[in-house]
Amino acid sequence: MNPTTFRPVNTKVHGTPVLRINAASRYYRDGDAEIRALDEINLTVHAGEFVAVMGPSGSGKSTLLSLAGALDTPTRGEVVLAGANISALNATGRAAVRRRHAGFVFQDYNLVPALTAAENIALPLELDGMSVRQARRAARAALIDVDAVELTDRFPDQMSGGQRQRVAIARALVGERSLLLADEPTGALDTNTGETIMRVLRARIDAGAAGILVTHDARHAAWADRTVFLRDGRVTDETGTAAAPDDLLLRGTAR
Protein backbone atom coordinates (compact mmCIF):
# COMPACT_ATOMS: atom_id res chain seq x y z
CA MET A 1 0.00 0.00 0.00
CA ASN A 2 1.18 3.47 -0.74
CA PRO A 3 1.94 5.01 2.63
CA THR A 4 0.54 8.37 1.62
CA THR A 5 -2.91 6.99 0.82
CA PHE A 6 -5.49 6.81 3.59
CA ARG A 7 -6.90 3.66 5.05
CA PRO A 8 -10.43 2.49 4.35
CA VAL A 9 -12.96 3.73 6.89
CA ASN A 10 -13.44 1.32 9.77
CA THR A 11 -17.07 0.59 10.20
CA LYS A 12 -16.93 -2.27 12.66
CA VAL A 13 -18.92 -2.26 15.89
CA HIS A 14 -16.74 -1.44 18.93
CA GLY A 15 -16.55 -3.57 22.12
CA THR A 16 -16.80 -2.81 25.81
CA PRO A 17 -15.72 0.57 27.18
CA VAL A 18 -12.07 0.61 28.27
CA LEU A 19 -11.89 4.24 29.32
CA ARG A 20 -14.68 6.43 30.64
CA ILE A 21 -14.15 10.06 31.46
CA ASN A 22 -17.12 11.66 33.15
CA ALA A 23 -17.27 15.44 33.59
CA ALA A 24 -13.55 15.45 34.39
CA SER A 25 -11.83 18.74 35.06
CA ARG A 26 -8.20 19.45 35.82
CA TYR A 27 -7.26 22.78 37.33
CA TYR A 28 -3.78 24.06 38.17
CA ARG A 29 -2.81 26.98 40.30
CA ASP A 30 -0.29 29.50 39.07
CA GLY A 31 0.10 31.89 41.98
CA ASP A 32 -3.36 33.36 42.56
CA ALA A 33 -4.57 32.46 39.13
CA GLU A 34 -6.42 29.23 38.43
CA ILE A 35 -5.70 27.59 35.11
CA ARG A 36 -8.39 25.30 33.77
CA ALA A 37 -6.44 22.80 31.68
CA LEU A 38 -9.53 20.61 31.23
CA ASP A 39 -13.08 21.60 31.96
CA GLU A 40 -15.99 19.17 32.24
CA ILE A 41 -14.70 16.69 29.67
CA ASN A 42 -16.72 13.59 28.77
CA LEU A 43 -15.16 10.84 26.71
CA THR A 44 -15.62 7.10 26.41
CA VAL A 45 -13.32 4.85 24.43
CA HIS A 46 -14.26 1.27 23.66
CA ALA A 47 -12.13 -1.75 22.87
CA GLY A 48 -11.20 -1.69 19.20
CA GLU A 49 -11.95 2.03 18.97
CA PHE A 50 -9.33 4.61 17.97
CA VAL A 51 -10.09 8.18 19.01
CA ALA A 52 -8.05 11.11 17.76
CA VAL A 53 -7.76 14.28 19.83
CA MET A 54 -6.94 17.48 17.99
CA GLY A 55 -6.62 21.03 19.10
CA PRO A 56 -4.18 23.91 19.26
CA SER A 57 -1.29 24.08 21.69
CA GLY A 58 -2.49 24.59 25.25
CA SER A 59 -5.94 23.18 24.51
CA GLY A 60 -5.53 20.41 27.07
CA LYS A 61 -4.64 17.45 24.85
CA SER A 62 -1.72 16.30 26.94
CA THR A 63 -3.60 16.80 30.17
CA LEU A 64 -6.36 14.65 28.78
CA LEU A 65 -3.81 12.00 27.92
CA SER A 66 -2.34 12.18 31.41
CA LEU A 67 -5.75 11.66 32.98
CA ALA A 68 -6.61 8.87 30.57
CA GLY A 69 -3.33 7.10 31.34
CA ALA A 70 -3.60 7.53 35.13
CA LEU A 71 -0.53 9.71 35.24
CA ASP A 72 -2.67 12.38 36.85
CA THR A 73 -5.99 12.60 38.64
CA PRO A 74 -8.87 14.96 37.84
CA THR A 75 -9.63 17.88 40.09
CA ARG A 76 -13.33 17.11 39.59
CA GLY A 77 -15.26 14.36 37.86
CA GLU A 78 -14.06 10.84 37.36
CA VAL A 79 -11.81 8.82 35.12
CA VAL A 80 -12.51 5.11 34.99
CA LEU A 81 -9.85 3.02 33.35
CA ALA A 82 -10.42 -0.71 32.96
CA GLY A 83 -13.07 -0.47 35.63
CA ALA A 84 -10.89 1.38 38.15
CA ASN A 85 -11.71 4.92 39.26
CA ILE A 86 -8.26 6.45 39.25
CA SER A 87 -9.27 9.27 41.61
CA ALA A 88 -9.70 6.67 44.30
CA LEU A 89 -6.20 5.31 43.82
CA ASN A 90 -2.97 6.50 45.31
CA ALA A 91 0.21 6.88 43.26
CA THR A 92 1.12 3.23 43.69
CA GLY A 93 -2.33 2.11 42.67
CA ARG A 94 -2.31 4.34 39.61
CA ALA A 95 1.14 2.98 38.69
CA ALA A 96 -0.34 -0.54 38.83
CA VAL A 97 -3.18 0.54 36.52
CA ARG A 98 -0.64 1.93 34.07
CA ARG A 99 1.42 -1.24 34.17
CA ARG A 100 -1.54 -3.48 33.48
CA HIS A 101 -3.96 -1.49 31.36
CA ALA A 102 -2.48 1.56 29.63
CA GLY A 103 0.54 2.13 27.47
CA PHE A 104 1.99 5.40 26.19
CA VAL A 105 3.62 6.13 22.87
CA PHE A 106 5.45 9.45 22.83
CA GLN A 107 6.75 11.68 20.10
CA ASP A 108 10.32 11.30 21.38
CA TYR A 109 9.92 7.53 21.88
CA ASN A 110 10.86 7.57 25.56
CA LEU A 111 12.66 4.28 25.58
CA VAL A 112 15.03 3.64 28.45
CA PRO A 113 18.46 3.92 26.80
CA ALA A 114 20.07 1.42 29.12
CA LEU A 115 17.64 -1.36 28.19
CA THR A 116 17.41 -3.35 24.97
CA ALA A 117 14.27 -3.31 22.86
CA ALA A 118 13.01 -6.50 24.46
CA GLU A 119 13.83 -5.23 27.92
CA ASN A 120 12.05 -1.95 27.26
CA ILE A 121 8.97 -3.83 26.16
CA ALA A 122 9.20 -6.22 29.10
CA LEU A 123 9.58 -3.32 31.51
CA PRO A 124 5.94 -3.05 32.65
CA LEU A 125 5.67 -6.81 32.97
CA GLU A 126 8.84 -7.08 35.02
CA LEU A 127 7.77 -4.18 37.17
CA ASP A 128 4.56 -6.11 37.75
CA GLY A 129 6.47 -9.09 39.06
CA MET A 130 6.63 -11.32 36.00
CA SER A 131 9.80 -13.40 35.74
CA VAL A 132 12.53 -12.13 33.45
CA ARG A 133 12.13 -15.11 31.14
CA GLN A 134 8.34 -14.84 30.83
CA ALA A 135 8.49 -11.11 30.33
CA ARG A 136 11.07 -11.53 27.64
CA ARG A 137 8.90 -14.07 25.87
CA ALA A 138 5.96 -11.67 25.95
CA ALA A 139 8.18 -8.88 24.69
CA ARG A 140 9.33 -10.97 21.78
CA ALA A 141 5.73 -11.72 20.89
CA ALA A 142 4.96 -8.00 21.03
CA LEU A 143 7.88 -7.28 18.73
CA ILE A 144 6.57 -9.87 16.26
CA ASP A 145 3.21 -8.09 16.36
CA VAL A 146 4.86 -4.84 15.26
CA ASP A 147 7.06 -6.64 12.76
CA ALA A 148 10.28 -5.71 14.52
CA VAL A 149 11.57 -8.93 16.00
CA GLU A 150 15.04 -8.27 14.63
CA LEU A 151 15.36 -5.41 17.11
CA THR A 152 15.09 -7.68 20.15
CA ASP A 153 18.60 -7.17 21.51
CA ARG A 154 19.31 -3.72 20.20
CA PHE A 155 19.62 -0.72 22.40
CA PRO A 156 17.66 2.45 21.53
CA ASP A 157 20.88 4.16 20.48
CA GLN A 158 21.27 1.53 17.82
CA MET A 159 17.83 2.03 16.21
CA SER A 160 16.31 4.51 13.79
CA GLY A 161 13.39 6.69 14.86
CA GLY A 162 10.83 4.48 13.18
CA GLN A 163 12.28 1.40 14.80
CA ARG A 164 12.21 3.06 18.19
CA GLN A 165 8.59 3.97 17.73
CA ARG A 166 7.69 0.42 16.78
CA VAL A 167 9.30 -0.74 19.97
CA ALA A 168 7.40 1.94 21.90
CA ILE A 169 4.11 0.71 20.39
CA ALA A 170 4.98 -2.87 21.23
CA ARG A 171 5.70 -1.79 24.82
CA ALA A 172 2.43 0.15 25.00
CA LEU A 173 0.37 -2.91 24.29
CA VAL A 174 2.48 -5.71 25.71
CA GLY A 175 0.75 -8.31 27.82
CA GLU A 176 -2.86 -7.58 28.80
CA ARG A 177 -2.72 -3.84 28.23
CA SER A 178 -5.85 -2.60 26.54
CA LEU A 179 -5.46 1.17 26.18
CA LEU A 180 -2.89 2.76 23.91
CA LEU A 181 -2.23 6.46 24.43
CA ALA A 182 -0.23 8.02 21.63
CA ASP A 183 1.06 11.55 21.98
CA GLU A 184 2.18 12.84 18.57
CA PRO A 185 3.78 9.46 17.81
CA THR A 186 4.93 10.50 14.34
CA GLY A 187 6.10 13.98 15.23
CA ALA A 188 9.78 13.13 14.97
CA LEU A 189 9.48 10.87 11.92
CA ASP A 190 9.54 11.46 8.21
CA THR A 191 6.27 11.11 6.28
CA ASN A 192 6.77 7.58 5.07
CA THR A 193 7.86 6.27 8.42
CA GLY A 194 5.03 8.17 10.08
CA GLU A 195 2.50 6.49 7.83
CA THR A 196 4.01 3.10 8.60
CA ILE A 197 3.77 3.76 12.29
CA MET A 198 0.14 4.83 11.97
CA ARG A 199 -0.56 1.62 10.16
CA VAL A 200 1.00 -0.36 12.94
CA LEU A 201 -1.04 1.55 15.50
CA ARG A 202 -4.23 0.99 13.59
CA ALA A 203 -3.49 -2.69 13.27
CA ARG A 204 -3.03 -3.00 17.01
CA ILE A 205 -6.33 -1.21 17.63
CA ASP A 206 -8.07 -3.42 15.14
CA ALA A 207 -6.72 -6.36 17.05
CA GLY A 208 -8.85 -5.29 20.03
CA ALA A 209 -7.14 -2.50 21.91
CA ALA A 210 -8.57 0.91 22.55
CA GLY A 211 -6.53 3.92 21.55
CA ILE A 212 -6.31 7.68 21.89
CA LEU A 213 -4.15 9.60 19.46
CA VAL A 214 -3.15 13.17 20.23
CA THR A 215 -2.05 14.86 17.04
CA HIS A 216 -1.85 18.11 15.15
CA ASP A 217 -1.85 16.32 11.82
CA ALA A 218 -5.27 15.84 10.19
CA ARG A 219 -3.88 13.11 7.98
CA HIS A 220 -2.98 11.04 11.01
CA ALA A 221 -6.25 11.84 12.75
CA ALA A 222 -7.98 10.42 9.71
CA TRP A 223 -6.74 6.99 10.83
CA ALA A 224 -9.00 7.25 13.87
CA ASP A 225 -12.59 6.11 14.18
CA ARG A 226 -13.61 9.50 15.46
CA THR A 227 -11.98 12.76 16.33
CA VAL A 228 -12.48 14.98 19.34
CA PHE A 229 -11.60 18.68 19.11
CA LEU A 230 -10.36 20.51 22.17
CA ARG A 231 -9.94 24.22 22.78
CA ASP A 232 -9.23 25.87 26.12
CA GLY A 233 -9.86 22.64 27.94
CA ARG A 234 -13.29 21.98 26.50
CA VAL A 235 -14.56 19.68 23.78
CA THR A 236 -15.66 21.98 21.02
CA ASP A 237 -16.56 19.43 18.37
CA GLU A 238 -16.53 15.73 17.64
CA THR A 239 -16.82 13.69 14.48
CA GLY A 240 -19.20 10.82 14.81
CA THR A 241 -17.29 8.58 12.43
CA ALA A 242 -13.95 8.65 10.74
CA ALA A 243 -13.58 11.79 8.66
CA ALA A 244 -11.44 12.69 5.70
CA PRO A 245 -8.39 14.90 6.38
CA ASP A 246 -9.80 17.90 4.59
CA ASP A 247 -12.96 17.70 6.60
CA LEU A 248 -10.98 17.45 9.80
CA LEU A 249 -8.85 20.42 8.85
CA LEU A 250 -11.93 22.44 8.20
CA ARG A 251 -13.51 21.50 11.47
CA GLY A 252 -10.37 21.97 13.45
CA THR A 253 -9.66 25.42 12.17
CA ALA A 254 -13.28 26.55 11.93
CA ARG A 255 -13.51 26.77 15.67
Partner: peptide
Protein backbone atom coordinates in the same frame (compact mmCIF):
# COMPACT_ATOMS: atom_id res chain seq x y z
CA UNK B 1 15.23 11.77 35.83
CA UNK B 2 14.12 11.16 32.25
CA UNK B 3 14.47 7.39 32.57
CA UNK B 4 12.45 7.50 35.75
CA UNK B 5 9.71 9.46 34.07
CA UNK B 6 9.56 6.85 31.31
CA UNK B 7 9.37 4.09 33.86
CA UNK B 8 6.67 5.99 35.65
CA UNK B 9 4.70 6.23 32.42
CA UNK B 10 4.91 2.49 31.89
CA UNK B 11 3.76 1.83 35.42
CA UNK B 12 6.71 1.94 37.77
CA UNK B 13 5.59 2.52 41.35
CA UNK B 14 7.04 5.53 43.21
CA UNK B 15 9.35 3.31 45.24
CA UNK B 16 11.05 2.21 42.02
Amino acid sequence: RRDMSIMSAVGAAPRT
